[in-house]
């Protein structure tokens, strides 16, 4: 009657990509001989997969599903949207603080400071994503 899920996978597409990236990283580090990295990435991949499968149970709590990125319906998606919005605002504020702090703490002889590049790029990219997201949202709503 409602909008049935078209996803026939045991977990969401996002989690499939996440697990695939983590396991691919584990394979690459294994080929490189870095066993510590292999164990860490493989363990993370298995943990993400297990969490997603656990959240997919019929009687799982809403917060369990949202935290595991296993949305069942429109309310789960709305809860996740609010959560990610807060993360976005906090990321922008922290990036701005980081950029100002690095700029203020860098001596005049260090100009242009290499360590300023990362926070500047991060702030620029976050602002760009924000502007694009606003534009897309304005066109769709």
């Amino acid at each position: 009657m409602s909008t049935p899920s078209r996803n026939r996978l045991p977990v969401s597409t996002t989690n499939v990509v996440l697990v695939a990236v983590l396991l691919a990283g584990a394979v690459v580090t294994a080929l490189d001989g870095s066993w510590r990295g292999t164990v860490l990435l493989a363990a993370l991949g298995i943990m993400v997969l297990a969490t997603a499968i656990y959240a997919r149970r019929p009687n799982s709590r809403d917060i369990t599903r949202v935290n595991a990125i296993e949305y069942r319906d429109e309310r789960d998606k709305r809860i996740a949207q609010v959560g990610f919005s807060v993360v976005g605002v906090v990321a922008l504020i922290l990036s701005a603080i980081e950029f100002v702090a690095v700029t203020a703490l860098t001596g005049p002889l260090d100009w242009p400071p290499a360590m300023q590049l990362l926070p500047a790029a991060q702030l620029f990219l976050l602002s760009l994503v924000w502007a694009v997201a606003n534009s897309v949202s304005a066109r769709r709503n």
Binding site: M1, S5, D62, R75
Partner: peptide, 29 residues
């Protein structure tokens, strides 16, 4: 029957969640 979670029905019943137009129509039907 509606393809949503039990928590969503509970949230609608207690007035904590306003359903989308689509879900509201499905509920009414």
């Amino acid at each position: 029957a509606l393809g949503v979670s039990r928590q969503t029905i509970n949230a609608i019943e207690t007035g904590r969640y306003d359903p989308s137009l689509r879900l509201a129509v499905h509920l009414a039907r």
